[in-house]
Design a binder for these strands. Structure first.
Length: 199
DNA sequence: GGTCTGATTATCT
DNA sequence: GATAATCAGACCG
């Protein structure tokens, strides 16, 4: 060993992504998020799976207009839209594009930062199960109602640019019954941390 | 390996 | 009353 102190956690790739990054349609932003690093209070990892949603298609919560639940989707880009799914889980989105209700749902991370905290919140050890699904990811990071409408480029969140060009695949979205034909799910090819195999 | 079901709440019909 | 951007555990072959 060299004698220099060993880092407790891996170095963080890339630069912090600010509000301007989100000023684009969700369908454009979604594939570019693959490989970026997302954390909440130091817990998280590389984004490996996302889905785009837009007010013009019926699978989106914004399709039938604004409600108390989806208000953040109609707000400024670069903020979080957090909602409760099936009455039990939390799901986390990045709001996109001013003047249009659209967002990118975070579906899976490759966990790398704050692993002990994430394992504690999830109550299990297997890294492949920590953040491989929108509800699991939110439980691991501690996302909840308090984060709805909060800016992504400010604490406790951090979103860092990808330092590589991941191999991204597109396919149909998961768990919806409308607009099933749109290939608006984006995954890092071959990642073992996806919520399910691309279809 | 797969398929089914319960949990629990906001929203819509 | 029904559905939903889900998950974990039970059960079957």
């Amino acid at each position: 060993m060299t004698g220099s102190p060993r880092p407790i956690e891996p170095p963080r790739p890339g630069a912090r992504l600010g509000a301007a990054f989100f000023e684009r349609p969700a369908i454009e932003l979604a594939p570019e998020l693959i490989g970026c690093t997302f954390t909440l209070a130091g817990a998280g990892g590389r984004i490996v799976e996302v889905e785009a949603y837009d007010e013009a298609e019926p699978a989106s919560h914004a399709y039938r207009g604004r409600t108390r639940r989806n208000a953040a989707m109609f707000g400024p880009p670069g903020h979080a839209y957090v909602y409760r799914s099936y009455g039990i889980h939390w799901c986390m989105n990045f709001v996109c594009e001013s003047g249009r209700a659209s967002a990118v749902l975070l579906r899976a991370l490759e966990p790398s930062l704050g692993l002990p905290a994430m394992r504690g919140r999830r109550g299990l050890d297997d890294a492949r199960l920590l953040c491989s699904g929108p509800g699991r990811l939110c439980q691991a990071l501690g996302v909840g109602a308090a984060h709805d409408g909060k800016p992504i480029d400010a604490a406790p969140f951090e979103l860092l640019e990808s330092d590589e060009r991941p191999d991204v695949t597109a396919g149909p979205r998961v768990g919806i019954s409308k607009a099933v034909e749109l290939p608006w799910r984006f995954c890092e090819a071959g990642s073992p941390y996806l919520s399910r195999h691309p279809g």
